[in-house]
């Protein structure tokens, strides 16, 4: 790993790994935030007395 620093391709390697890390973390954030929002919406609807055929938890 230390051999990478100071090489002429350092910027390209870091950029490639950086963009992959950023996009995968963004995907994870997107699924988690959507899940939290959907759970909140379902809870609100159930509080309003609406029943669904199957239960969602987790």
């Amino acid at each position: 790993m230390t051999a990478l620093f100071g090489t002429e391709y350092f910027g390209f390697i870091v950029s490639a790994y950086g963009v992959v890390t950023f996009v995968i973390l963004a995907l994870l954030a997107w699924v988690h935030l959507t899940y939290a929002a959907r759970k909140r919406d379902l809870a609100k609807l159930e509080q309003a007395g609406l029943k669904r055929g199957s239960q969602v938890d987790g």
């Binding site: 959507t34 899940y35 959907r38 379902l42 199957s54």
Partner: peptide, 19 residues
């Protein structure tokens, strides 16, 4: 995780229609 979200989206839509 995305499939779970999609199932929940459909459940919400069904409940909203019921309401």
């Amino acid at each position: 995780m995305a499939m779970r979200n999609e199932i929940m989206r459909r459940q919400i839509r069904t409940l909203q229609r019921k309401a």
